[in-house]
Simulated scan of single mutants.
Amino acid sequence: MSEKKKFALVTGGSRGIGKAICLQLAMDTEYKILINYKENASAAQETLNEIEKIGGSAEIIQFNVGDNKDVQNKLDQWHETNKDAIIEVIVNNAGITKDGLFMWMKPEDWNNVINTSLNGFFNVTNHLIQKLLVHKYGRIINMVSVSGLKGTPGQVNYSAAKGGIIAGTKALAQEIAKRNITVNAVAPGFIKTDMTGDLDEKELKKMIPMNRFGDAGEVAHLVSFLASKKSSYITGEVININGGIYS
């Protein structure tokens, strides 16, 4: 049997932490990177170009992680055209925020955040898991947040979504550990990205023992380690990367 081509899928891989993860995996591993995006095609293309510039290899796949049918259709089409391929690493990174006080929160702001983060984790991982179980090897890495661990006021929806993924990570890790598949979560604190661009960095830095925001590249190094064979005895863990803000 010919050796399968091995891929690492990063959802929401076109910008921010997702983009940094795509680049780091391309640098550190032999994987071909599958860059998922929902709407921003030009950002996804830019990530692809940067990966090729550093000598890596990548493809783009468009789907909305929150739409189960879309996820299934696009991944099935992809497998149809890549019959000799296996997605060995899944990085569930896609997520959105719709912040606001719970008292005033609209149902759509609750549902959209839960749908993208929590249901997105289910839709993508559930559809790919059977192939990993047959393959008897895999790495599932879920991007969560300090909000999912300690809760953040004004982010009840986001905290609930990320907290749900944390619990799911621990449960799934136990189900599939015998098959050599690890499931871990990475919980960033304040990281410099588009998503944190509107925050008052000067004020928030005072809360952080390291007195600075993190860099997306720092998060990407951790994800790259968890995606490698070096992390083979770590599973069901939530690893904080937050400059000491929650320790």
Results as ranks from 00 to 15, higher is better:
residue 2 S to P: 14
residue 4 K to Y: 12
residue 8 A to W: 01
residue 8 A to T: 05
residue 8 A to V: 06
residue 10 V to D: 02
residue 10 V to N: 01
residue 12 G to C: 14
residue 14 S to T: 14
residue 16 G to S: 13
residue 30 E to L: 07
residue 33 I to C: 01
residue 38 K to E: 12
residue 42 S to R: 09
residue 42 S to G: 07
residue 43 A to G: 11
residue 47 T to L: 06
residue 49 N to L: 13
residue 50 E to P: 05
residue 57 S to F: 12
residue 61 I to P: 02
residue 64 N to A: 12
residue 70 D to N: 15
residue 71 V to Q: 04
residue 72 Q to G: 07
residue 72 Q to D: 12
residue 82 N to K: 04
residue 84 D to E: 15
residue 85 A to D: 01
residue 88 E to I: 02
residue 91 V to E: 00
residue 96 I to Q: 02
residue 98 K to T: 05
residue 99 D to E: 10
residue 99 D to Q: 03
residue 116 T to F: 03
residue 119 N to M: 12
residue 120 G to K: 03
residue 123 N to H: 13
residue 126 N to T: 08
residue 129 I to Y: 00
residue 130 Q to L: 08
residue 131 K to N: 13
residue 134 V to N: 12
residue 137 Y to T: 10
residue 137 Y to P: 00
residue 139 R to V: 09
residue 139 R to F: 05
residue 140 I to S: 00
residue 151 G to P: 07
residue 157 N to H: 10
residue 159 S to I: 09
residue 160 A to I: 03
residue 160 A to F: 01
residue 163 G to L: 08
residue 165 I to M: 13
residue 166 I to D: 01
residue 175 E to Q: 12
residue 175 E to A: 06
residue 181 I to Q: 02
residue 184 N to Q: 08
residue 184 N to R: 07
residue 192 K to G: 03
residue 195 M to D: 04
residue 196 T to A: 11
residue 200 D to A: 06
residue 201 E to H: 11
residue 202 K to A: 14
residue 207 M to H: 13
residue 209 P to T: 10
residue 211 N to T: 05
residue 212 R to V: 09
residue 215 D to M: 13
residue 216 A to V: 06
residue 220 A to R: 02
residue 233 Y to F: 15
residue 234 I to H: 09
residue 234 I to W: 09
residue 236 G to H: 08
residue 237 E to D: 11
residue 238 V to N: 00
residue 241 I to W: 01
residue 243 G to C: 06
residue 244 G to F: 07
residue 247 S to F: 10
